[in-house]
Design a binder for these strands. Structure first.
Length: 360
DNA sequence: GCGTATGATTTTTG
DNA sequence: CAAAAATCATACGC
């Protein structure tokens, strides 16, 4: 829009090369701060060249990407605010520069007037100009700083995904859950698998990673909450296998005190029996040292009316409630079994209020 | 409004 | 460095 004059005072460097450090010297010479501010403003598009029609550009940007619509909308909102900030910044900056120039000429005129009656050394004039410019540039610095602050706040308010987060689409969670429960024995998708999932779900790979991280930890935390979900997705992928496994469990329910075979390690969720065998082999063999949940059969019998139920191989002693099982079945973590053996959470939880960190 | 679910970030850990 | 654990901040259903 407004082609700025660009006749600013660039020369001030040569004006005061050797001035004594009196009070506040943190103005020009050592400005890592100023540099950073300038860089940031530039990077953020606040200080750089004017971009097209401001809000119109934002709208165009919103229309450009087809997939993530809401994201773009939020982004456009952000950009609108940024434009606002930039306009204020430019206006103020111009105002300051103008005032600076005016003031300088004013002082110059005064000095010239005085020079008729009194001899005024050019050094003195220079000094005055230097003072004025320093003053104004410190004001500019303040302006830049507050602008930076505003941008930061805006950024954290709009771009920080933790704030305006959206749940994934139902479809995406379906896909993720399907994968999770059909790989319960080892729910760690490879990079390729993650990419595949990300593609299918229209999310990023790191979002997939986040999802699996959250899912694993939360699943392990209390499996009870996820049982029906697990059953649901298990049934979705393989009903037949589930039946077979259920039959096996029922067979073993009568006796077999310590035979953790049955449906261990998500057998119910595998698409076919061949995979099931593979999985079991690897389970017994190497990947999964010592996760046999011996006494688990009991609980299976309890909740068998829901087909196989969990038996995923992890601890089934729900941490919160039944911490000490009469059978002494120690809850050891599933996927990485080396967890602390005495993982029974300490019962001091409610009114204990042991934490009192009122620091800052 | 409140409690829970959930995605993301930060800190801890191996 | 990746995963776990802890934590944060919002979304969502009631």
């Amino acid at each position: 829009m407004q082609a700025t004059g660009t006749q600013h005072i660039h020369r001030r460097h040569s004006v005061h090369t050797c001035l004594s450090i009196r009070g506040a010297q943190e103005e020009d010479p050592p400005d890592p701060q100023l540099m950073r501010l300038d860089n940031m403003l530039l990077a953020e598009g606040v200080a750089g060249p004017e971009k097209g029609g401001g809000s119109a550009a934002a709208a165009a940007a919103a229309a450009a990407s087809g997939g993530a619509a809401d994201n773009s909308i939020e982004h456009s909102d952000y950009r609108a605010k940024l434009t606002q900030i930039r306009q204020i910044y430019h206006t103020e900056l111009e105002k300051y520069e103008q005032a600076c120039n005016e003031f300088t000429t004013h002082v110059m005129n005064l000095l010239r007037e005085q020079s008729r009656t009194r001899p005024i050394s050019p050094k003195e004039i220079e000094r005055m100009v230097g003072i004025i410019h320093r003053k104004f540039s410190s004001i500019q610095m303040q302006l830049k700083q507050s602008t930076c602050e505003a941008v930061m706040i805006l950024r954290s308010r709009f771009l920080d995904a933790r704030r305006k987060r959206r749940n994934f689409s139902k479809q995406a969670t379906e896909i993720l859950n399907e994968y999770f429960y059909s790989h319960l024995s080892n729910p760690y998708p490879s990079e390729e698998a993650k990419e595949e999932l990300a593609k299918k779900c229209s999310i990023t790979v790191s979002q997939v990673s986040n999802w699996f991280g959250n899912k694993r930890i939360r699943y392990k935390k209390n499996i009870g909450k996820f049982q029906e979900e697990a059953n649901l997705y298990a049934a979705k992928t393989a009903v037949n296998a589930a039946h077979a496994a259920a039959a096996a469990v029922q067979n073993s329910q009568a006796n077999s005190p310590t035979t953790p075979n049955s449906g261990s390690s998500g057998s119910f969720s595998l698409p076919n029996t061949g995979d099931m065998f593979l999985s079991m082999q690897s389970l017994n063999g190497d990947s999964y040292q010592g996760v046999q949940v011996g006494a688990n059969v009991q609980s299976q019998v309890d909740t068998l009316h829901h087909v196989i139920s969990q038996t995923a191989g992890y601890n089934d002693a729900l941490a919160g409630n039944t911490m000490y099982n009469p059978h002494g079945l120690n809850a050891n973590g599933g996927w990485q079994d080396a967890m602390t053996p005495s993982s029974v959470i300490s019962p001091t939880e409610g009114p204990g209020s042991a934490h009192s960190d009122t620091s800052n």
